[in-house]
Protein backbone atom coordinates (compact mmCIF):
# COMPACT_ATOMS: atom_id res chain seq x y z
CA UNK A 1 0.00 0.00 0.00
CA UNK A 2 1.54 3.36 -1.00
CA UNK A 3 1.84 6.12 1.58
CA UNK A 4 -1.01 8.47 0.66
CA UNK A 5 -0.22 10.95 3.43
CA UNK A 6 -2.85 13.45 4.50
CA UNK A 7 -4.92 12.85 1.36
CA UNK A 8 -5.50 9.14 2.04
CA UNK A 9 -9.23 9.65 2.74
CA UNK A 10 -9.79 11.53 -0.51
CA UNK A 11 -7.90 9.03 -2.68
CA UNK A 12 -9.35 5.91 -1.06
CA UNK A 13 -12.92 7.21 -1.07
CA UNK A 14 -12.59 8.12 -4.78
CA UNK A 15 -11.49 4.60 -5.63
CA UNK A 16 -14.11 3.01 -3.39
CA UNK A 17 -17.00 5.11 -4.78
CA UNK A 18 -15.94 4.55 -8.41
CA UNK A 19 -15.42 0.81 -8.04
CA UNK A 20 -18.76 0.41 -6.26
CA UNK A 21 -20.58 2.35 -8.99
CA UNK A 22 -18.86 0.43 -11.80
CA UNK A 23 -19.52 -2.93 -10.10
CA UNK A 24 -23.19 -2.07 -9.60
CA UNK A 25 -23.50 -1.04 -13.25
CA UNK A 26 -21.94 -4.30 -14.48
CA UNK A 27 -23.99 -6.43 -12.03
CA UNK A 28 -27.31 -4.76 -12.96
CA UNK A 29 -26.45 -5.01 -16.67
CA UNK A 30 -25.72 -8.74 -16.42
CA UNK A 31 -28.80 -9.39 -14.26
CA UNK A 32 -31.13 -7.57 -16.67
CA UNK A 33 -29.50 -9.30 -19.65
CA UNK A 34 -29.98 -12.78 -18.22
CA UNK A 35 -33.56 -11.99 -17.19
CA UNK A 36 -34.40 -10.73 -20.72
CA UNK A 37 -32.76 -13.80 -22.31
CA UNK A 38 -34.79 -16.18 -20.07
CA UNK A 39 -38.03 -14.28 -20.75
CA UNK A 40 -37.52 -14.46 -24.54
CA UNK A 41 -36.65 -18.16 -24.41
CA UNK A 42 -39.81 -18.86 -22.38
CA UNK A 43 -42.05 -16.98 -24.82
CA UNK A 44 -40.42 -18.66 -27.85
CA UNK A 45 -40.75 -22.08 -26.21
CA UNK A 46 -44.42 -21.43 -25.51
CA UNK A 47 -44.91 -20.39 -29.15
CA UNK A 48 -43.15 -23.52 -30.43
CA UNK A 49 -45.21 -25.78 -28.16
CA UNK A 50 -48.39 -24.35 -29.68
CA UNK A 51 -46.92 -24.99 -33.13
Amino acid sequence: MPDLGKYADAVLSSYAASLVLLSLLVAITLYQGRKARRALEAVERKGNDRG
Binding site: T29, Q32, G33, A36, R37, A39, L40, V43
Partner: peptide
Protein backbone atom coordinates in the same frame (compact mmCIF):
# COMPACT_ATOMS: atom_id res chain seq x y z
CA UNK B 1 -24.49 -6.27 -24.08
CA UNK B 2 -27.26 -3.83 -23.07
CA UNK B 3 -28.29 -3.34 -26.73
CA UNK B 4 -28.67 -7.12 -26.99
CA UNK B 5 -30.86 -7.02 -23.88
CA UNK B 6 -33.03 -4.27 -25.39
CA UNK B 7 -33.40 -6.25 -28.64
CA UNK B 8 -34.53 -9.34 -26.68
CA UNK B 9 -36.99 -7.31 -24.59
CA UNK B 10 -38.45 -5.79 -27.74
CA UNK B 11 -38.77 -9.21 -29.39
CA UNK B 12 -40.44 -10.62 -26.25
Amino acid sequence: YRTGTEIRLRRT
